[in-house]
Design a protein around this nucleic acid. Sequence first.
DNA 1: CTGGGGAAGGGGCCC
DNA 2: TGGGCCCCTTCCCCA
Length: 737
Amino acid sequence: MRGELRAMLQWREADFQERCTYIVKDQPCEMLACPNFPRAQASLPRNLAFQCNSSHKVVAVLSREYIPSGTRFGPLVGEVYTKENVPKNADRKHFWRIYTPGGELHHFVDARDPRRSNWMRYVNPTPDAPAQNLVACQNGLEIYFYTLKPIVTGAELLVWYNHEFAERLQCPLLGVLAEELEHDGIRKSTAEAPTTPGPQPPQRGSVANPNLTAKLTKNKEEEEGDEDESVDVEALDRGLPPSPAGCRRAALRGQLPQEVKQWPTGLSPFPNAPGKEGAPGKSSPPRQRAASPRNQPVLNCCPYGPTTSLCKELQRCLSSLYPSCPLYSPTGHLSQPYLYACGTIPAHYPRFALPPHAVPFLPAPPLSRVGEVPLLGLPLQDPQVYARARGDGTSPSPGLYTTVLPHGKQEAHELWKPQDVLISLQSGTFSFPGLDYGPKQYSSPAGGTSYTSEVQQQKSTSLLAHPLEAINLSTPKFCPPAGRLGTTPVPYPLKKQNGKIKYECNICAKSFGQLSNLKVHLRVHSGERPFQCHICKKCFTQLAHLQKHHLVHTGEKPHECLVCHKRFSSTSNLKTHLRLHSGERPYQCRLCRCRFTQYVHLKLHKRLHERQRPHRCPSCPKTYIHPFSLALHRRGYCPLAPGAAGAPAQLGHFNAMIDHFDFSLDAERLEGEGADPARAPGLLENLILRELETGRRGQLPRDKGPCSPGAHKQLPLLPLPHYSVSVKQEDFPLQPA
DNA sequence: CTGGGGAAGGGGCCC
DNA sequence: TGGGCCCCTTCCCCA
Ligand SMILES: [Zn+2]
Ligand SMILES: [Zn+2]
Ligand SMILES: [Zn+2]
Ligand SMILES: [Zn+2]
């Protein structure tokens, strides 16, 4: 993980664009007809939340959800000024500079006005390397924030510049990158400049730099309406060393690292940056003054807080936008000061129902093919099937663009409306920036619907917005790093594992030897099901599955049992069936030695034992008949509890021995004798350790004796079976002797 | 209720 | 690269 982070930190901006897995778009603000709800707040994606201070000002942006690495937010929205038309006295704290590929200033984006900017203005910068989880990049002529690492639920989004970005701004490399580069002894020549305190080198006759640094120099509480700190942008414009005012302030606060404290405030234009915001007549043009946060209606920070008219209005707007999204209830689950863009985070928020290995993101709503616009803001008609409109305005052909999300995840869908556009970029059938997969033709020989997916090179919206400034991604400035395959950039994290190239899923970290396998795998996360049965409309992730499925309609059963001539639709099912003839029962209950032909039967059987085990480990699924067994298990042998001692394999073995003892007559005797609860676990531990030392491990009979509830009581106490450790061992088919 | 058998879906590996 | 194949899992039904 660490290595990956370091690698990502050295990515160029174009790499983020090309390699990102998910795109999280803003809430479509056009849909929100709440005039008093500023865009900066209304645009917040639903997997994020605002944190407010006591005066209801937004002070941070938090994650409502696990957000995987490689997720893109943005673009930053703000008012656009060119060098020529930038208001003379503009408040530049929220300015962002957009450069041409040649390094010339192209324009400014001013995110100062919450009505004309988006939520990204509220993301705080961080000088704290380990805390940084976002990196700001300019792609095309837009600013995006990419996740550098997974962001856990409730964590604050903290951003710093990509190193290329920092280079352009001639701004100190801060955050993780600086640390990593320092650590590596790597230092890009151009990025080298100002890591040391002191006056900044003159800027190329450019205008003030909107930077993250300024924001660092001040408490958020001071932010809005604070007039006493001014940034000498004109000095910067003239290439003069920046005013040290902000540095002093930072030093006084004593919270920032040395370098940061001494950074010039001029190099810091960030949303929440300190400054003249809301200072009427001083620096803001009248038009902006009207939009000053000071004049904004105060939004209730907690959805359940005082029911202001604005709050009601917001509720109305949001609930009309999300019919299934509950209105803010007066008694929510959440404590203040969270402001959620929509509804509550219900206790049953689907993610929490998923096992840790499950899709960290709820299934992406309709995936966007190039040239297509996701249906934004439209309530779902059918939670199973999303039909999507095509960007060219033609109505979708029903057989063509239908994406079905994974089974059993309908509940999740209802919370992720299409507005939460998480667009998978990596599936071959979908758009991928900088990659041209060419038209694809899928046809199902099994009779499924064939369809064509036209995939074109995604055009950066920024490029479209600025045709005159078209940035050719192939220009050196945006070249992907060397070491990729061929000339086409590979959008997947590559890893070398003992000499072999591995393609790693950046959602679940599973790695694949072949890119095509990873692409197929990614459908697990994206929910993409490109193969549809034309008879029942069911969709599948793989053609082979559709083909197999098609047999249910034809009734064809290609696989015959040569013993009884029964026929089966699949080889697996035949194989299971053959066990009936061979007598093979690979799944054995470790406790009662009962054996089964199918795993599911063993599992059901084990539930019977579970019922006899009231002592449940709070950290892992283990249950015990006797309290001392649980006590011992929890004394450092639970693999999921903190403080587990030993390798997983060792723990597994030890736990197997606890299991065995727990199930033995000796354990029953021990409990029947009223064993001292304080001493029994220690006794048991010693017993097991002695066993381990002497290595006296015999083989338990693996016969298929009767499996009666009391059968295990006749089992030999110790020695234990020579199971090779893994707890899951008993679930694996035993090799036929 | 429990054991047992089959149908079908889904993921991953390999050629 | 993707189709074929294998394995695993879940669901359902029945005795
Ligand atoms: Zn994955
Ligand atoms: Zn069908
Ligand atoms: Zn047979
Ligand atoms: Zn058993």
